[in-house]
Simulated assay, not measured.
Amino acid sequence: MRTDEAVRVATLAAAQVGMPAHDAQVLRVGENGVVLLPGVGVLARVVQGAEAVQRVRLEIAVADWLASQDVPVARPVRSEPIVVDRHVVSLWEYLPGGHSADLVTLARCLRLLHGVARPVGLLTRVSPFSRLCEQLALAVGLDERDRTFLHERRDQLAVQWEYATFALGEVVLHGDAHMENLLVTAAGRCAFIDLESVCVGPPEWDLTLSALYYECGWFSGHDYATFTHTYGYDVRRSPAWPLLRQIRMLRMTLWLAQSADNDAQRRQQLRHRLDSLRDGSAPAGWTGF
């Protein structure tokens, strides 16, 4: 999503509900956009595709439910999304000074989330391959050989998923659990954000990203050991770890492919990820963005 597009859509959405947005500021753009409306202390989250309205409506309902269960989450300020052109906008509280959590805080909050009783009828089961075909269709910087390889890898992993064995049962998951999706304010408040992937499934799914990021070299062995000690389990002990690892690397590669068209470093990293997936050396040399 382009920066100017995110600002335009957020401004129009704010106008529909009578919020001032003359000073709108983009905080993040990627597949979606996050725009701050400073005058009212609200974040506008912009999702592409009008068909996303039901998905966004569910995210708002899930946030309200998690808050009622004393799970630390960012709270919506409006119960209904706003449709602007072919975009869906949801409005959320802004947490001034919020910064990414450390691994210990992430582990502690995941234990709290995973301990919540599963609701009836609200959440779907985890779907590791959801939207991957759509992302592949929209990906840039891929030739036909790349697309065939990724399609085949997706199909192989999907078959393996049907027979996977997990050690920890099923719980409520964040679905995209990493440090940037848990904010901590200067006052010490924690809040999970980006709740569109909340679902029910094995806790190992939420633990895999931290283990994989450690393999990428993005934080130290000491930090990862503290994470596993705080949570009480190292996902690399799971019989499903090799599969979980491959699925997450596939998803990380397709995520990068959504934004590699106008950035030489991203294109170079995308090519490296594809090559290392092919030769089995992944995630060596993977960098973050």
Score class of each variant (00 low, 15 high):
Met1His: 03
Thr3Tyr: 10
Glu5Tyr: 02
Ala6Arg: 00
Thr11His: 08
Thr11Asp: 07
Val17Met: 09
His22Ser: 15
Asp23Gly: 07
Gly30Thr: 00
Gly30Ala: 12
Gly30Arg: 11
Gly33Arg: 00
Val34Trp: 00
Val34Cys: 01
Leu37Thr: 11
Gly39Thr: 13
Val40Glu: 12
Val40Phe: 09
Val42Ile: 14
Val42His: 07
Val42Gly: 12
Ala44Pro: 03
Val46Trp: 00
Gln48Val: 07
Gly49Asp: 13
Ala50Met: 06
Ala50Ile: 09
Val56Ser: 07
Arg57Cys: 13
Arg57Asp: 13
Arg57Ser: 15
Leu58Tyr: 05
Glu59Met: 09
Glu59Thr: 08
Ala63Ile: 03
Trp65Ser: 01
Leu66Ala: 06
Asp70Gly: 01
Pro72Asn: 08
Val73Glu: 02
Ser79His: 14
Glu80Asn: 10
Glu80Phe: 01
Ile82Glu: 05
Val83Lys: 08
Asp85Leu: 02
Arg86Ala: 13
Ser90Val: 05
Leu91Tyr: 10
Trp92Val: 04
Glu93Thr: 05
Tyr94Asn: 03
Pro96Ala: 12
Gly97Val: 10
His99Glu: 15
Asp102Cys: 10
Leu103Cys: 02
Thr105Glu: 13
Arg108His: 13
Arg111Ile: 06
Gly115Ala: 06
Gly115His: 05
Ala117Phe: 12
Val120Met: 13
Leu122Val: 12
Ser127Phe: 08
Phe129Met: 00
Cys133Ser: 15
Glu134Leu: 11
Gln135His: 14
Leu138Glu: 14
Ala139Cys: 12
Val140Glu: 12
Leu142Ala: 02
Asp143Ser: 08
Arg145Ile: 13
Asp146Arg: 07
Arg147Trp: 07
Leu150Tyr: 02
Arg154Tyr: 09
Gln156Asp: 15
Leu157Gly: 03
Gln160His: 13
Trp161Leu: 03
Trp161Ile: 01
Phe166Glu: 09
Phe166Ser: 07
Leu168His: 10
Gly169Ala: 06
Glu170Tyr: 00
Gly175Gln: 04
Gly175Asn: 06
Asp176Gln: 09
Asp176Arg: 02
Ala177Arg: 06
His178Ser: 03
Leu183Arg: 02
Leu183Asn: 05
Val184Ala: 05
Ala187Met: 13
Cys190Gly: 01
Cys190Val: 08
Ala191His: 00
Phe192Ile: 00
Ile193Lys: 05
Leu195Met: 04
Glu196Asn: 11
Ser197Tyr: 14
Cys199Met: 09
Val200Thr: 12
Val200Phe: 06
Ser210Val: 15
Ser210Ala: 15
Tyr214Gln: 15
Glu215Ile: 11
Glu215Ala: 12
Cys216His: 01
Cys216Ile: 08
Gly217Cys: 03
Trp218Asp: 06
Ser220Asp: 12
Ala225Tyr: 09
Thr226Gln: 15
Phe227Lys: 05
Thr230Val: 13
Thr230Glu: 15
Asp234Pro: 07
Val235Thr: 10
Arg236Tyr: 05
Ser238His: 03
Ser238Trp: 02
Ser238Leu: 01
Pro239Asn: 04
Ala240Ile: 10
Leu243Trp: 03
Gln246Asn: 14
Ala257Asn: 00
Gln258Val: 00
Gln258Met: 00
Ser259Trp: 11
Arg267Glu: 11
His272Gln: 11
Arg273Glu: 14
Leu274Thr: 04
Asp275Pro: 03
Leu277Gly: 01
Arg278Tyr: 04
Ser281Cys: 04
Ala282Leu: 02
Gly285Asp: 09
Trp286Val: 10
Trp286Tyr: 14
